[in-house]
Design a protein around this nucleic acid. Structure first.
Lengths: 300, 300
DNA sequence: GCACATCCATACCCGCAAGGTATCGTTCGA
DNA sequence: TCGAACGATACCTTGCGGGTATGGATGTGC
């Protein structure tokens, strides 16, 4: 078939998200009837039923579910194409780097020092965004490079450069029964309340733990004794005085990576990646040691 | 800005490829003036100059170059969204597997045997396409899974599962001065004419070697003494009697991988990947041995 | 050096499809 | 059983995408 227009994809996504033509139309700033017709026409041209409608309700079919995720990807790609072209047109070129608070595991300063020595370097704007927002920013072109954390962030669709791998630790209230242990395993934490991160759909329905947006909120909740947390070692430097950090022997290590859109050809991005690799190498040789120094700073 | 419509992206791609409004309009089946206007409007809304025009010629600006590759990606994503939804709507579900001739390194049969035992298995249609066409087929949704070869194929944008790593060998005319050697290095082959693969832009300008589309053509050219080739070991089984295969000590090993669109959630695809991993494991333990059996078949 | 060909832009016109309003038919809940 | 909610249908309007004719600029050949 002839390809659908961007507008039709946006219409479908709105309806699929609202599962309600009236609300979707409102969100799109248009009336309901043309929206109904547009979706019907889209289905007819695709030869696929995307929505199962009764006169009272709307439901996604299997194909509709697939088309929803694919349409989101396609729309991201379209907006990204514009953003990247606009970025490339800047006479005053700069790179936008997205990170969540503490998302660089302390590497950023060193990376930028390396970067500035590179002849391909341009100005860098660092955008500190919410947890889990870096990947969307990269996907739709608002950022050129981002710090992501494997295995928590979805790295699909990006090229990546691993920078620093760290073990995780348990963060407990000072008074917690396990706080005195020299080391713990995940089994020891079974049944303990954990903070809920945004975008975590899995337990959205079960006994609602408080949702947290950054490390300080976690620390606050731990200090109050409401949750225990599992966090990378580098967070020790941000630990509050009345919480205890205990090594976790069997938690999967996390890796801070540089991520950027696949097949990027920008020299400025390449230079930044190089700088990241260099900085990681320097720091990495003594990664554990650096961690330990971190502990010292906090604990003594 | 408001996002561009699919149609506008297609228009731009046509003009950017032809660098000529008249021909692009012809290709699009429309008149030239509305095309000029559409592009001008697109540039105005984006706030970016994509094309440098004189009254006699058209050239891509830097931003235009970026926008061209990004637009192609976006258009692929849009057509893929339709194809995948249509695929998902089939009452008779099936998977489409793209491969070039010999692209499975002999694994396919075993993989399918494993696959059929899986409860999530559906029918599999194997499409044998030209060399280098698997990735585009995957990108625009014509295929669900493909055999690709690292490091030659561009794996960006796909999830992959390595199946089989093989060393490469030199394929020479029987009468070639190096044909008798027990082993060779890449340095030995310096200056020898190599076949040109489609999509190989690098040497498109230099002394034009014959372009080849499949293994038999390579064998034909080697047998004629026109080229020497560097190919994976598994090709020995396809070697012609009057060519010699000599191990190459320092050529990079190639890996046959399963590739599929990132973030795929289909159970049928997951089952096929599992089958591939199992078949590779079974074969992989004896990968070298299997290769040797292949040699025997061909050489004795 | 002038005339002509080439090629993109502009001017102007037209038809259709996208969008709006009014209303219908169905279904669920009070 | 009646009314409210909600998607579909009917019908109208208009703006925009596309067509033709032509202009303006720039190489090119005689």
């Amino acid at each position: 078939m002839d390809v659908p227009e961007t507008r039709e994809l946006a219409y479908f996504v709105a309806v699929a998200e609202e599962l309600h033509f009236g609300r979707a139309a409102q969100r799109l700033g248009m009336a309901q009837p043309p929206l109904s017709r547009a979706i019907a026409r889209l289905e007819r041209r695709m030869g696929v039923q995307l929505l199962a409608r009764t006169s009272r309700s709307v439901r996604l079919t299997g194909a509709g579910q697939v088309f929803l995720t694919e349409s989101r990807k396609a729309l991201d790609a379209v907006t990204a194409s514009v953003r990247r072209a606009q970025r490339a047109a800047r006479t005053d070129p700069k790179l936008t780097l997205a990170m969540k608070p503490n998302g660089d595991a302390g590497l950023l300063e060193s990376i930028l020092q390396h970067y500035r020595r590179d002849p391909d370097a341009v100005a860098i704007e660092v955008i500190v965004c919410g947890i889990g927002e870096q990947a969307p920013m990269l996907r739709d072109g608002r950022a050129d490079v981002a710090f992501l954390t494997a295995p928590y962030d979805d790295l699909a669709g990006f090229d990546t450069e691993p920078l620093l791998t760290q073990d995780q630790m348990a963060v407990l209230p000072r008074a917690h029964r396990l706080a005195g242990r020299a080391a713990l395993t995940l089994a020891d934490l079974a049944g303990e309340p954990l903070p809920r991160w945004p975008g975590d759909e899995a337990d959205a329905t079960d006994g609602r733990q408080p949702e947290v947006r950054d490390i300080s909120q976690v620390m606050q909740l731990v200090a109050l004794g409401q949750v225990v947390a599992v966090l990378p070692e580098s967070v020790r430097r941000r630990a509050w005085p009345d919480v205890a950090c205990v090594p976790l022997l069997d938690a999967p290590p996390t890796t801070v990576v540089f991520a950027w859109p696949e097949r990027t050809t920008s020299r400025a991005v390449a230079a930044l990646i190089r700088a990241g690799a260099e900085a990681a190498e320097v720091a990495g040789a003594g990664a554990v040691r650096r961690g330990e120094i971190g502990y010292q700073d906090t604990l003594t």
